[in-house]
Design a protein around this nucleic acid. Structure first.
Length: 534
RNA sequence: GGGCCGCUAGCUCAUCUGGUUAGAGCAUCUGCCUUUUAAGCAGAGGGUGCCUGGUUCGAGUCCAGGGCGGCCUACCA
């Protein structure tokens, strides 16, 4: 574009005759022009602004502040302009809410008033100083004596009376946050919930730790991993699907209550309850068993219900969840028997498969008997578990890291906590016999060989650690995003993730990722070698 | 992965069975307005109708392929 053309484009909004503004480009050009004019009066991008109050603090202290007539300094984003000739009202949003400000020509002087009236745009971030008053309709308002631009919005805000599209909210979360106080509050609440989780575990004597996200072997759960590559080590690494195997090594080492709140990565489908990266809380306590972990889970939920629910209950869609009372406890097999009306445990494999098929459960070749039970359970029982319910004592084959049940043959000491039909927590008395653990891994490998693509890998380093002696241990994993969904009455995981995974829009040219990346890695390696030889 | 639905101005949406110049509200621009509340009044501008092909005298509209999204479903936590 020539300078002449640029000038023509920029002339538009400033000129009284106004060459027509058209489209986004000219809106931006117009705002750039206004920015230039504002910059004549004051720095366009000042370095700081001293606020005396935030919006909620002004509201809380409103009576006193109005009496004292003291000056407050407040900053936020300009959300509307209601100009009335020689005065102007404008709502200003900060993180905590909205506060109206009032510009008056007689008080500001003609130049400053004109700047506010003509050169400020919706979306601009400004700081104001003035005293508080109430309008005749009772709206708390700052009477502006001075204001300054803190950042110009060169692009227009979305329309304010209709909801932004779901896609736009997710792709441009900054706009969703800027436009919707509820969104800001939701993510503040998420943070508060996570803080509360930490506080509870800290108070219970747990130590927060960090373990590798890049792992040479993936384990601790059944899922397909993301694969990445370490150039210097010249090896493939996996993004963790769980922290479990590392946390247990810490138990071996004598850190006897540990937890980690971390992103796990699973290379699987995405939907309303699944995102490729998600946040998991895992906690392990030496000398505990799964009964102790049930107590912990119950106490956690109760505490969160007290803090974030109403009277110990949580509203989720049409359901009212009571977390104040002890949770129901039901054995896995008993729940299946009740759901099917059949003595499931007594059926032989063929009869079991027939039963499953008759209930619409798809049986794939290579699925072991316990996998069939698990599918049946998912299909028939899970959706019915609305109130908090511990489902306990699962079939052994499904739980290669859990300890044999102390009484029941073929079962392990495990529980899953279900609320509103989805799994919130998974826990066991951790298997701590290294020889048994090896046998379980080997059984998994047999399943893998038989075509079970979810079977777990044998982790020799983990086994070696266990061979040094791992105390009896209780462990639990809690899906943090789902917990947040429950406590925020959100029905899509996207609503509780600031930046949910989305396909790129393709509005920017993207490099041919994998090939360029690999080529660069090779180049780097060649350069390193050349450097060493030199 | 499969099915259904959607994609039109910066945003939210109209545009009937293919047919003049694709409309509205908000936002923008010009003018008026000294306590407004989705402020108001008068006027103006703003469109690659997701992309690529096809059918047709004529396509935002019909057909095919592709892209992105939503819902349901499958897999999973």
């Amino acid at each position: 574009m020539s300078d002449q053309q640029k000038d023509d484009r920029r002339k538009a909004p400033g000129d009284d005759r106004g060459a027509a503004t058209q489209g986004l480009e000219n809106i931006i050009a117009g705002r750039e022009e206004k920015l230039a004019r504002l910059a004549e009066a004051a720095p366009a991008y000042p370095y700081r602004f001293d606020r005396t109050h935030r919006s909620h603090e002004i509201r809380a202290a409103a009576t006193t502040l109005m009496e004292s007539q003291e000056r407050v300094r407040f900053a936020g984003r300009l959300m509307a302009k209601r100009g009335m000739g020689k005065t102007m009202f404008a709502p200003l949003d900060d993180e905590w809410g909205r506060l109206q400000v009032y510009f008056k020509k007689d008080d500001l002087g003609p130049e400053a008033f004109k700047r506010a009236q003509k050169l400020l745009d919706l979306g601009d971030v400004i700081g104001v100083e003035g005293h508080l008053f109430e309008t005749r309709t009772g709206e708390l308002t700052i009477h502006v004596e001075r204001f300054e631009l803190l950042a110009k919005a060169l692009r227009p805000l979305p329309e304010k009376y209709h909801d932004m599209s779901v896609e736009l909210k997710s792709r441009r979360r900054h706009l969703d946050l800027a436009m919707n106080l509820e969104t800001r509050e939701r993510f503040r609440r998420r943070s508060a919930i996570v803080t509360e989780l930490r506080r509870h575990l800290d108070e219970a004597g747990f130590l927060e730790v960090e373990t590798p996200a890049l792992q040479p072997l993936y384990g601790g759960a059944t899922a397909r991993p993301f694969v990445t590559r370490h150039n210097a080590l010249d090896m493939e690494l996996y993004l963790r699907i769980a922290d479990e195997l590392y946390l247990k090594r810490l138990i071996v080492g004598g850190l006897d209550r540990v937890y980690e709140i971390a992103k796990d990565f699973r290379n699987e489908g995405m939907d309303r309850t699944h995102n490729p990266e998600f946040t998991m809380l895992e906690a392990y306590a030496a000398y505990w068993d799964y009964h102790d972990m049930m107590d912990l889970a119950e106490a956690l939920l109760r505490r969160l219900g007290e803090r974030f629910g109403e009277d110990g209950t949580i509203t989720y869609g049409e359901h009212t969840i009571d977390v104040s009372r002890p949770f129901a406890r039901v054995r896995f097999m008993d729940a299946l028997v009740e759901a099917t009306g059949e003595e499931v445990g007594a059926l032989d494999d063929a009869a079991l498969a027939d039963l499953a098929r008759s209930r619409g459960v798809k049986i794939k070749p290579g699925m072991g008997r316990d996998r069939v039970l698990d599918e049946l359970f998912s299909e028939l029982v899970e959706p019915t578990l609305i109130q908090p319910t511990f489902v306990m004592d699962h079939p052994k084959e499904l739980s290669p890291l859990a300890k044999d049940h102390r009484e029941a043959e073929g079962l392990v000491e495990r529980f899953e906590l279900f609320v509103c039909g989805f799994e919130l927590a998974n826990s066991f008395s951790e298997l701590n016999d290294p020889r048994e653990q090896r046998r379980r891994f080997e059984a998994q490998m047999t399943l893998a060989a038989a075509g079970d693509d979810e079977a777990q890998q044998l982790d020799e380093d983990f086994l070696e650690a266990m061979e040094h002696g791992m105390p009896p241990t209780g462990g639990i994993g809690i899906g943090v995003d789902r917990l947040i969904m429950l406590l925020c009455d959100c029905h899509s995981i996207r609503d509780v993730l600031l930046f949910p995974a989305m396909r790129p829009e393709g509005r920017q040219e993207r490099p041919g990722f994998s090939e360029d990346w690999q080529r660069k890695a090779d180049d780097d390696q060649a350069a390193d070698q050349a450097g060493q030889e030199a």
